[in-house]
């Protein structure tokens, strides 16, 4: 069996939004400890990992199940959540559906068809990074918006103790520099200068679910995948994005 009650449907919607920007389908691996899911996008450029411990739920009861979901359909249903709705997720094993129930002034139920998506058994690779930056999501997203004006990819750099978001187009350039004492920076753990270039659209998708005051943990090296990690409503979201590399 699987039944989970989430006090704020809107918080869970953010998690589904973040995943559905990058993935078509996902397998939720539910167990008595909580829900986890790991998947790569079809092009293998990005990896999404989510961990929602049972403590993040108002009520939680589950055996071990793999629940395969079409994320586009799930996202459309979650878009129907109202501000004060509770969310109940419930596996109907007989009908092979996931019941998605919004409980507000009325009880509204959707039965979502399950997909035969087997769990990937993916692990987030344990990479050692020379640099780790904790930054307010709003500040980072703003820097990405600046970069978006000049090109569709962006360099994330660590230079001389500063964290720099830099883009260069045919004609124009943009640069945002964060120093360690900036109000937007929570901490910078800098080991060495680094530079990696990334597709901007992916970075925007990965950070879309974060509110501006949420804290992003960004790990970067030179020509390495970037790791971006943040928490939403007690759930942990981790993303890896492969870089663009000079050939």
């Amino acid at each position: 069996m699987f039944k989970a009650v989430i006090s704020e449907a809107k918080e869970f919607k953010k998690i589904i939004d973040a995943a559905s920007n990058l993935l078509d389908e996902i397998c939720f691996e539910v167990s008595e400890d909580g829900i986890k899911a790991r998947a790569m996008d079809p092009s293998h450029v990005a990896l999404v990992s989510m961990d929602i411990p049972k403590e993040a739920f108002e009520e939680y009861e589950a055996d071990v199940h793999d629940i395969g979901i079409d994320l586009e359909a799930f996202k459309k249903i979650m878009n129907r959540a109202k501000a004060k709705d509770k969310l109940i997720l419930e596996l109907d094993e007989e009908k092979n559906k996931l019941n998605v129930i919004f409980k507000g002034t009325a009880r509204r139920k959707f039965a979502l068809a399950l997909y035969d998506v087997s769990s990937s058994n993916l692990q987030v690779p344990d990479i050692e990074y020379p640099n780790e930056i904790l930054i307010k999501a709003g500040a980072f997203v703003d820097a990405l918006k600046d970069a978006d004006l000049v090109n569709d990819h962006v360099a994330l750099k660590v230079d001389d103790g500063k964290f720099i978001i830099y883009a260069k187009g045919d004609l124009n350039e943009s640069e945002t520099i964060f120093e360690e004492d900036s109000e937007d920076i929570i901490s910078m753990n800098i080991g060495e200068n680094a530079r990696s270039t990334f597709n901007l659209e992916y970075l925007k998708d990965m950070t879309k679910a974060a509110s501006s005051d949420d804290i992003l943990k960004i790990c970067i090296g030179t020509d390495m995948p970037v790791k971006i990690e943040y928490d939403i409503g007690g759930a942990n979201l981790t993303f890896l994005l492969a870089p663009r590399i000079e050939s």
Binding site: S43, H44, L47, N121, I127, N151, A242, I245, E246
Partner: peptide, 14 residues
């Protein structure tokens, strides 16, 4: 700005 590589280029993910 180079060529997009995949995560498979960095680690074996199953």
């Amino acid at each position: 700005f180079g060529k997009q590589v995949t995560l498979d280029d960095f680690f074996t993910i199953n």
